[in-house]
């Protein structure tokens, strides 16, 4: 298919040009990410206030998290961002093979993250790190730390699963040829994926690295 025809096929109402449509998609996602910043920021503010109120209990609680799993997962996600960036660039450059391979790798890294997370959750449950009766640590404030641990990692996992789902759909569409590589969806997915990665970049030091020294 010629270049012009491919671009016309990717252009949608009400946009006047593909260039503007791409800018619109990126801009729309960026606004949405601004919204997401406030969403996670709200929880992080709550976490920060409690951390400054109860530093010792939070340090003791942070020592209980499994740093190996956390570090491996950070590396997995950062690498998935690399493949995602390559996939988005490849789609913009019209490189079909690179795009498909990198999307597949991204999905694989994402699923790998969730699998590791699952093992970690299982270990946390057996170690009685779920807030409530029979909690492992003495200080009641340590339960607040683990309330946030479960909540933040859980919400992050939901976001990541959404990203994996969208990446899978886009990958299949691109493979079948029902979605043009010129479509702005790849870049939009990339922005979302990198944001989910960024959330983890901040969760990692807050949840895993505290109280280690």
């Amino acid at each position: 298919m010629s270049d012009i025809a491919a671009r016309n096929a990717a252009l949608r109402q009400p946009w006047r040009s593909l260039r503007r449509q791409r800018e619109g998609a990126a801009f729309g996602i960026w606004i949405f990410l601004g919204s997401e910043v406030m969403f996670f920021g709200c929880a992080l503010l709550t976490f920060a206030v409690y951390r400054s109120l109860w530093p010792d209990a939070f340090a003791a609680a942070a020592r209980e998290t499994n740093i190996t799993y956390g570090t491996v997962n950070t590396a997995l996600l950062l690498t998935s961002s690399l493949t995602m960036a390559a996939a988005a660039e490849g789609a913009a450059a019209g490189l079909r093979r690179l795009t498909l391979c990198c999307l597949a790798a991204t999905v694989a890294f994402g699923i790998g993250f969730l699998v590791v997370k699952g093992f970690e959750y299982q270990e946390d449950i057996t170690k009685h790190l779920v807030p409530g009766a029979g909690f492992r640590l003495e200080a009641p404030q340590a339960q607040i730390f683990f309330a946030f641990y479960w909540l933040l990692t859980g919400v992050h996992a939901v976001h990541l699963s959404t990203g994996i789902g969208i990446a899978t759909v886009l990958g299949i569409q691109a493979w079948r040829g029902s979605r043009m590589l010129a479509s702005p969806a790849f870049e939009a997915l990339g922005l979302y994926w990198h944001f989910v990665d960024l959330v983890w970049v901040f969760l990692y030091p807050l949840l895993y690295l505290g109280g280690r020294s």
Binding site: T46, A57, V130, P131, P140, Q141, Q143, I144, L151
Partner: peptide, 11 residues
Amino acid sequence: IPIFDPLRGGD
């Protein structure tokens, strides 16, 4: 899970 629970240090 305790987040605002004053008995466990919440605010």
